[in-house]
C-alpha cells in the first residue's frame, strides 16, 4: 500500500477535524479526495505529509511512518492557495526547493529545465513570480511538486486558475505520472474533472469518511432509461413494474424498471422486454440511453447530510 491509514483522528482543541478515518491506497492510483470546505481533506493530507501530528491513529506512507525524512523524500506537495515567494524566478525557486530536497546542483538544474518545458513555462526564466498569472503560478507549483520525481503526489486543487487547454495538459501529465507508477492524491471541487481523471475517490464529511470506492463503482448505472419513440405513447400502453414519466420537455421518457439489483445485465433484460412490448404496441424506437449516477449526484447527496446511497 502507498498509503495506509487506520482510525486516524485529529483534534484542534474541542474541534474535531478528523474522526477515525481509515483508508488504504494502492500504488499507481489517481485518488480523488472530495468533501466540502472544512471536511478534513487538507488535514488528512497534512498528516500524511508529516506536517501535522495526528491526535490518535496510525498513518503510513510507502510502508514507513509518516513524517520521516525518508518518507518525505518520496512525496511531492502542491498546497491549496500556495504562495510561492515572489522574489524568485521559476529557475531560482526550483533550485531552492531542489536543494532543500537534496538534489545535487547539476541534476536539479536539468530537472528544472525539463519540468519548465513540460509545463509550458520555458522562456520566462527571467520573470519574477510577482509578474506571474494565476495559471502560471499553478504550473510552477506543480513543477516544484514533481521536481524530485516523487512516488506520491498530493495536489490540492491542481488546475485552479488554469485555462481549459492547460487543464487538459495537466490531466495528461498526471495520467503520465500514474503510468510511471506514481500515486496521485487530488483534492478538488471540480467534480467533473475528478470523475474524468481519478480511478478512486473518497468523500469526507465533517471529518468522517463517508464513502470510498472506484469511480466506476460510485457512478454506477441506474435502473432507469431515457427513451424516445417516433410518436407519443398511447394512454393504453402499460408495462408491469415500469414507471414512465415525461422528461426534457416531453421529448424523452424516463423509464424506471424495478426491481434491479446492482450493475450488470439484469436491467438489460428488463429493458429488452419493455422495448419488445412497446414495439408490439406499434412504437418505433428513436433513442435509448441508460441513466448513470454522476459523482456530483453522489457528492450532493452526501453533502446534504444524506447517507451513502
Amino acid at each position: 500500500m502507498v498509503v495506509s491509514v487506520k482510525q486516524l483522528e485529529k483534534r484542534y482543541g474541542p474541534h474535531r477535524a478528523l474522526g477515525g478515518v481509515s483508508l488504504d491506497v494502492e500504488p499507481a492510483t489517481l485518488f480523488g479526495l472530495l468533501g466540502q470546505n472544512g471536511a478534513g481533506k487538507t488535514t488528512l493530507i497534512k498528516i500524511l505529509l508529516g506536517l501535522v501530528v495526528p491526535t490518535a491513529g496510525e498513518a503510513a506512507l510507502l510502508g514507513q511512518p509518516v513524517g520521516t525524512f525518508s518518507a518525505r523524500r518520496e512525496v511531492g506537495y502542491l498546497p491549496e492557495d500556495h504562495r510561492l515567494p515572489e522574489y524568485h524566478t521559476s529557475t531560482s525557486l526550483l533550485d531552492l526547493y531542489g536543494a532543500l530536497q537534496g538534489i545535487p546542483r547539476r541534476q536539479r538544474r536539468r530537472r528544472a529545465a525539463e519540468l519548465l518545458d513540460l509545463l509550458g513555462l520555458a522562456g520566462r526564466e527571467k520573470l519574477r513570480i510577482r509578474g506571474y498569472s494565476k495559471g502560471m503560478k499553478q504550473r510552477l507549483g506543480l513543477a516544484q511538486a514533481l521536481l524530485h520525481s516523487p512516488r506520491v503526489l498530493f495536489l490540492d486543487e491542481p488546475t485552479d486558475g488554469v485555462d481549459p487547454v492547460g487543464r487538459k495538459e495537466i490531466r495528461d501529465l498526471l495520467l503520465e505520472e500514474r503510468r510511471r507508477g506514481v500515486t496521485v492524491f487530488i483534492n478538488s471541487h471540480l467534480l467533473g474533472e475528478v470523475e474524468q481523471l481519478c480511478d478512486r475517490v473518497a468523500i469526507l464529511r465533517k471529518g468522517e469518511l463517508m464513502v470510498t470506492g472506484t469511480v466506476a463503482d460510485l457512478t454506477r448505472q441506474k435502473a432507469s432509461w431515457l427513451v424516445a419513440f417516433d410518436r407519443g405513447v398511447p394512454v393504453s400502453f402499460r408495462f408491469p413494474g415500469a414507471t414512465i414519466e415525461t422528461v426534457e420537455g416531453g421529448s424523452r421518457l424516463r423509464v424506471s424498471l424495478a426491481p434491479i439489483e446492482g450493475p450488470g445485465a439484469e436491467g438489460a433484460e428488463a429493458i429488452d422486454t419493455f422495448l419488445a412490448a412497446a414495439s408490439a404496441a406499434g412504437l418505433r424506437l428513436r433513442h435509448l440511453e441508460r441513466e448513470r449516477a454522476t459523482l456530483e449526484d453522489l457528492y450532493l447527496a452526501i453533502a446534504s447530510g444524506g447517507e451513502t446511497p
Binding site: P27, S92, L96, L100, P104, S149, R180, V182
Partner: peptide, 29 residues
C-alpha cells in the same frame, strides 16, 4: 505494474540530504 514502478525508480533523480547544500540554498534565498 511492479516492473513499471522499478523502471520509474531507476529514472528518479538521486536525492541525498546534505547540510552544506541546504545552508547554501537558504543563503541564496
Amino acid at each position: 505494474h511492479f516492473s513499471r514502478e522499478d523502471a520509474a525508480a531507476a529514472e528518479r533523480v538521486t536525492v541525498r540530504p546534505w547540510v552544506p547544500r541546504t545552508f547554501a540554498a537558504i543563503l541564496r534565498d
